[in-house]
Amino acid sequence: MAEQVALSRTQVCGILREELFQGDAFHQSDTHIFIIMGASGDLAKKKIYPTIWWLFRDGLLPENTFIVGYARSRLTVADIRKQSEPFFKATPEEKLKLEDFFARNSYVAGQYDDAASYQRLNSHMNALHLGSQANRLFYLALPPTVYEAVTKNIHESCMSQIGWNRIIVEKPFGRDLQSSDRLSNHISSLFREDQIYRIDHYLGKEMVQNLMVLRFANRIFGPIWNRDNIACVILTFKEPFGTEGRGGYFDEFGIIRDVMQNHLLQMLCLVAMEKPASTNSDDVRDEKVKVLKCISEVQANNVVLGQYVGNPDGEGEATKGYLDDPTVPRGSTTATFAAVVLYVENERWDGVPFILRCGKALNERKAEVRLQFHDVAGDIFHQQCKRNELVIRVQPNEAVYTKMMTKKPGMFFNPEESELDLTYGNRYKNVKLPDAYERLILDVFCGSQMHFVRSDELREAWRIFTPLLHQIELEKPKPIPYIYGSRGPTEADELMKRVGFQYEGTYKWVNP
């Protein structure tokens, strides 16, 4: 592979701008107003304001973009700056750019259920340069409990009458099928589907988006991507930290609602779906819905739930269990780990287990898709061969690698495990991989909904998990304890083995 010439960040961002501006969906010269509902909250200060700053800094926003914060707290732009700027990672050389960014910011205080507050917000936006005809993007960085009041008031008082209007809704989209349907029906009564952007930030990850290209742009994968060759698929999300004093919020939802029903299920769809007619948003989402419709409700015998306990040999936070978090209700049975087996009941995947695993306070930070292939028929190497695996590593250190057998150097035919490896950090030294939120917010500006969740996708996802969630809430089974920093409950490994996964433990990928 030829040595790549190092590029400056300015040059890299210039390439990104060229890609972005050559499309006809990006209205570079139009006025846009980006409204952050819930501007005083954690999500706004840690993710949304920093993301908008990065896009502005790199010249990736339309030229005439204004940012308006809205929340109940009586704040000023200076207050917003004070709480969000520490997350910007701005350099001293960017000081003038930073001043320009905050000059485009404003803030309006108001209630979430008060019509007069929204009329005041609308008047404020109209007073901005060309504000009355601007395109408006409303980001709901809010708890779902206020979605209905907020969307109703936005629709009645704050819509642009000339430009387009788009609304970005953060997960969780309800707690179960019934609450999700209620919320979807409410929002759909106010906005068209092409105006609604239900954001799952995992769909903005580079390697998640790469799944489609790997599958449908490489001839070698087509013939082997089926039940005849693939023994099982494992989708993993692991965090090495616990709730760390923020367990009160987590306890309301648990690990299945927080990660599995959305992030992991979306990745499953991209692995299992048929080739779409095109890369058009609805063509892709149509195929994802077909996959979900082929999955039956989760069966309790295919589920393992766990909850982390303190590690007596650990240090600091590792010595504390979930129930030691003062914000967690006493005696909570909320799971911090889950392993679930699903089956896609169609011709391509009949009988292939899709194993979804996620948890907190585990032994490493990792998100990946792992396809394990069947054993080689007619073994001539005296059971020395391990199964081939194709691994798409989402985070950290984005990579695609194939675990395969090669001859060990020497005189004899002794096979050993090795890999074919594409590590993004080595291959793409001159490429700026956008943060997931950067990519998705740019998608909203461009009107691309491919990486957002459609209402029928959402409904099918909740259909699969709601009976299990209701059973857990009714019966309150005690989750299996696992030690902070471990791989999780051993019962999860036993479940995976029972459905056909072979864990060798003899080879570990190392970032080159």
Rank of each mutant, 00 (worst) to 15 (best):
A116F: 10
Q11G: 14
D79G: 13
Y249L: 01
L137G: 10
A141V: 03
L130M: 10
I162L: 15
Y70F: 13
N218E: 00
E19V: 10
S157H: 11
G174Y: 02
M125L: 09
E93H: 14
A115F: 15
E252C: 10
D114R: 14
R219H: 06
A116Q: 14
V68M: 07
Y147F: 08
F250S: 02
I234G: 09
N64Q: 10
R257F: 00
T51D: 04
S157P: 04
T91E: 10
L130K: 10
F241H: 10
D113Q: 14
K89F: 08
D58W: 02
G110F: 02
Q111M: 09
T51L: 04
Q119M: 09
A134E: 10
Y147I: 03
K205H: 01
A78V: 06
N105D: 00
T243W: 01
E244V: 07
S73I: 03
A71R: 01
H32A: 05
G254R: 00
G247T: 09
R74M: 14
P240N: 12
E170I: 01
H129Q: 08
I33H: 09
A141S: 08
E206A: 04
F26K: 11
A134V: 12
M125C: 11
L16E: 10
N153Y: 10
G204R: 00
F34N: 04
F26V: 14
C158Y: 10
M159E: 12
S123E: 15
K47R: 11
L7H: 15
T76L: 06
I48D: 15
H124L: 09
K46A: 03
R74N: 12
N185V: 12
L190R: 12
F237N: 04
P143D: 02
P86Q: 05
V233R: 01
S106A: 08
R120H: 11
G204S: 01
A103M: 12
F21E: 07
R246E: 01
D176H: 08
I167C: 13
K205G: 02
L60Y: 08
E63N: 06
I48V: 11
N126D: 12
E252G: 12
D58H: 14
F66V: 08
E244T: 05
R246D: 01
E244N: 07
A25S: 10
Y139C: 08
K171W: 00
A6V: 14
G174S: 07
V146E: 05
F241I: 07
S157W: 06
G254V: 01
V68F: 11
I230V: 13
L235P: 01
S29N: 11
I234Q: 14
A116G: 10
A115C: 11
R227W: 04
R192D: 15
D24I: 13
M125G: 07
I199F: 10
Y49D: 03
T31C: 09
G245N: 14
N226P: 01
I67R: 00
K82D: 13
A115V: 14
P92G: 08
R192S: 05
C232K: 03
G245Y: 07
R182A: 11
A127N: 08
P223G: 06
S117I: 07
P86H: 10
S8C: 04
A39W: 00
F66P: 09
M125I: 12
T10I: 14
R104L: 10
Y197T: 03
S132T: 14
H32S: 15
S189Q: 08
G247I: 07
G242S: 04
F250C: 05
V169I: 12
I35G: 03
N229P: 03
H129S: 12
F102N: 03
L20D: 14
G69V: 01
V150R: 01
K46M: 03
L128A: 11
W225P: 02
R182D: 15
D24R: 09
P144E: 05
F253T: 04
S157Y: 14
F216T: 04
G222I: 05
E170Y: 00
Q195D: 06
I162S: 10
E93C: 10
L214G: 05
K45P: 06
I36N: 02
D194W: 11
V213Y: 12
I256M: 14
Q83T: 06
I256E: 04
Y249W: 02
L98S: 09
G38A: 03
I187Q: 08
G69M: 05
L203N: 06
R17H: 15
V77Y: 11
I80L: 09
T10P: 08
G59T: 02
F138Q: 01
M207H: 00
T236W: 03
R81K: 05
F101R: 01
W53A: 08
G110Y: 06
R182M: 15
M212Q: 04
S106K: 14
T236H: 04
F26N: 15
S84E: 10
E244S: 11
A141M: 05
I220V: 07
L75P: 10
T91A: 12
F173L: 07
G41N: 02
E19G: 11
T151R: 03
K89P: 06
N122E: 09
Y118V: 08
F250L: 03
A149D: 09
A44S: 04
L137F: 12
I220H: 01
D181E: 08
L61W: 05
A44L: 00
T51N: 14
I33Q: 07
P144N: 02
R57P: 03
E93N: 13
A109Q: 06
R166M: 00
S8L: 05
Q111Y: 09
P143T: 03
G254K: 01
K95E: 11
R104A: 14
S179D: 04
Y118Q: 06
M159S: 10
Q119D: 13
R57M: 02
V233C: 07
I162W: 13
R192L: 10
V108M: 11
Y49F: 08
A141P: 00
R182I: 10
Q11E: 08
I48P: 03
F101E: 00
Q195K: 06
E99W: 02
L183D: 01
Q178C: 13
G131L: 13
R72F: 00
E85G: 08
D251W: 04
P144G: 04
Q22P: 12
A90K: 09
A116V: 13
G131I: 10
L43S: 02
L55T: 12
R57W: 01
E93M: 14
S188V: 14
G23H: 15
S179N: 06
A78K: 15
A217P: 03
M212G: 04
A217V: 06
L20S: 12
Q28H: 08
L96Y: 09
Y70E: 04
F191E: 02
M37N: 10
N153Q: 06
L211Y: 01
I35K: 01
D113Y: 14
E206H: 10
A127W: 05
T76S: 09
E239M: 01
A78M: 13
P92I: 15
Q119L: 14
I255R: 01
P143Q: 02
Q209K: 02
N135T: 08
V233F: 03
I33R: 07
S157T: 04
L75A: 11
